[in-house]
Structures are given as C-alpha cells and as structure tokens.
Design a protein around this nucleic acid. Structure first.
Lengths: 136, 136
DNA sequence: GTACGTGCAAAGAATTTGCAGATAA
DNA sequence: TTATCTGCAAATTCTTTGCACGTAC
C-alpha cells in the first residue's frame, strides 16, 4: 500500500512531511523511534523538525494508522502493523523484531529463532470500570 | 514476607532506605513509579532523595527482587510480583492493575471485570541471536 | 580505614508547548 | 480569507551522573 493511499484510508490530510514519514514506516519495519525517523528523513527534507515528527506520529496514532510501542523505556517506538502480534526486544542492541506468538513451553529459554527469551510481558490497555462510569 | 527478609533472600544488603522502599512495594500493589514511592516515603524519611529511590529500584531489579514495567510511556513502574502475569493499564486514570490472563474471545471489548479492553500488547525481552553470537 | 550507601546539584535526554511564519483550500 | 501545518526556541519532565559526605564493618 502506498503512503498517500494509507493516509487517505485513515482520514489524514496529506502533506509532504506526512507522506515522507508514512513512507518511511511502510518501507522500514524496524519499529523506529522519533529520532530514527528524523535522522533518516532529514537529508531529504532539510527543513524537517523533530516537532513535526512528534506531531505527525501522534496524529497517525490518533487516526489508528500506527501503534505506539512502549517496550523500550528509553524510546517510544512506532509500528505500522496495527494488527495484534508479539514483539521481541533485545536488551543488548535495543532492536525490536516482530515475533510470532509462542507456545508456553517455548517461553523462557532458547526458542526456535535462537533468541534468548528471558521475560514475557503481556499488557492490556483500555478504560477501567471506574473511568467508564465517570464518563457517563 | 517481611521487607528485610525479602532483601536477604535476594542478596541485597539492607539499609533504612532499602527496607522502607521494599516495605512500600510489599504493602502497595499499585505498581508505583519512582515519584509515588518518593512522595509516599518522604514524610517519614525527610532526608530521602529521588536519586536514592532510583538507585534502590535499579538495584532491586538487578537482583531480581522486582520487575520493571514499561507500559506507561510517561512513567516507568515497578512490580513486586516477579511471576509471569498480565496487567491492565487504564488510559484515562493511568492506573495499572493485575489482570488474569484472558481467553481470546474476551480480548477487545468488555471483559468480565467490566474494563473496556482496546489494546493487547505482548512483548518478549531477552538477547537476540546476533548479540548472543557477539558475546562469545 | 576501606568499602559502600546516600543525597545534593548539575547534566542529559526525551518530549511538549507557545508562538509566529508558511502553506493550502 | 481562514484554517491548518510546520518548525524554531524554550520549557518541562524523567532519569542519570559526578562528587562529597556519612556510615558501618
């Protein structure tokens, strides 16, 4: 899917910067943080500012075009794949990879992809009962 | 389990501050962030500094006495329960609750605890194949 | 006395905000 | 025109670092 098309599908008004950022996300499945995107695009768009990257990613997320990942406590990362899937975070090189859901016996220890899995984190997000009530 | 005992089990040399912080974690299953712990303990220990809270939590984590949670991108939280379990993060009040593992049909939508689950995040952490090789 | 623990102040890094100029419908 | 988009600079927040003092064995 082309960047422009994807913006339109999610009701995001296109601009040069937005297309470039969406394009980067579509071409690079590296779950990039703000700085990676900024550094990659700056040579092509020398007027680009980090503020715009922040603004744009926030906008994309609000329109459900991307998903925010809070795996790495140093950097917020973004995923163009919004469907439910798991991730693997290497605590040494800090890279995030997509990961197939694993069977319980594969958790912890060495899995078939030869990564050493030491931690499993499962989070749900949403709105709790109390907050739902107070919204009425 | 008493705080002192838990420190000893994990080979952490006790001190007044360490006991107080461990005690707070054992008494409050709120998955507190640094600031919550600091604010709660400061009245009792007026000389306490945030640096010490940071140092202590880092030390606890290194000794596997607590687990760091990177759910909320604003605040790193800590969990005294190091066994594998799921969490629920309310995007409105920012509270983190323990959550039983849910069946797939309960994911997304309203579960039996009446929280509105809108996102499911599953992360694995560890060391990737490349980094394992370069360690040899 | 030596090693370790604590805490201040400063530095550093990630992110947000305010605002003014640029751009587009 | 009129609303929206962009980007600079400053502010804010979270976290780390350097260092000196204090404490304990």
């Amino acid at each position: 899917m082309k960047a422009l098309e994807r913006l339109q599908v999610h009701n995001i008004k296109p601009s040069m910067q937005r297309i470039a950022i969406m394009d980067y996300l579509l071409e690079n499945y590296t779950h990039p943080a703000v700085d990676e995107i900024y550094t990659a695009l700056f040579p092509k768009i020398p007027t680009l500012s980090k503020t715009t990257v922040y603004n744009t990613l926030k906008l994309f997320e609000e329109h459900d075009a991307i998903k925010m990942l809070t795996i790495d406590d140093k950097n917020t990362c973004f995923d163009i794949d919004t469907s439910p899937h798991a991730h693997f975070f290497c605590k040494k090189c800090n890279k995030i990879e997509d990961f197939n859901l694993m069977k319980p016996e594969q958790l912890k220890g060495l899995d078939q992809s030869n990564h050493l899995v030491t931690e499993v984190h499962l989070y749900y997000k949403g709105v709790c009962q109390e907050c739902l009530r107070s919204e009425e």
